[in-house]
């Protein structure tokens, strides 16, 4: 085990999100709706030197396994991330995030005049582009501020 991984101790069960681009860990927590008030045990390592990525962040959330929708949104800001599911100190599943072609119902359109923000029976829908996402309904592009538009 390398020094880098020892910076944050192992967890018993939960999810380890590794290979998050340096500096993005807090956004990942925002996507997961974690601001500390929920009482979750969370460890964050930021800007850890990484051979592949230069600097990476690692997020460990105890006693929680992520939903596919959450993983989809994480993939938008951390396309290289790996999601490790830990049970009893063992990694039982290790997955790379896959950027979906579309995300439905997880982001709110930043365009206040978009039909999806009105009182209509539709869920938001975004096409995933190489850089950012685009509202399927009103074509608005969302690039830098994806985490702030999570529904």
């Amino acid at each position: 085990m390398s020094d880098h991984q020892l910076r944050v101790s192992k967890i018993r069960s939960g999810t380890v999100i590794d290979h998050v681009p340096g500096g993005q860990a807090l956004r990942v927590l925002a996507i997961l709706g974690i601001d500390g008030t929920g009482g979750e045990t969370v460890s964050v390592a930021m800007n850890v030197p990484s051979d592949d990525m230069g600097a990476k962040d690692i997020v460990k959330v105890e006693d929680r396994e992520l939903s596919q929708a959450e993983v989809d949104v994480i993939s938008l800001i951390a396309p290289e991330a790996t999601i490790n599911i830990v049970r009893d100190f063992d990694v039982v599943e290790k997955n790379r995030v896959v950027r979906p072609e579309q995300v439905t119902g997880v982001l709110q359109c930043p365009n206040a005049n978009c039909i999806t923000t009105a009182d209509e029976p539709v869920r938001s829908e975004f096409t995933v582009l190489s850089e950012g996402v685009r509202c399927v309904y009103c074509d608005t592009l969302l690039r830098d501020d994806i985490a702030a538009h999570i529904d």
Binding site: N111, N113, C114, I115, A118, V122, Y137, C138, D139
Partner: peptide, 9 residues
């Protein structure tokens, strides 16, 4: 319609 995306929806 006054909202963007209304026709698509």
């Amino acid at each position: 319609h006054p909202s963007e995306g209304a026709a698509k929806m």
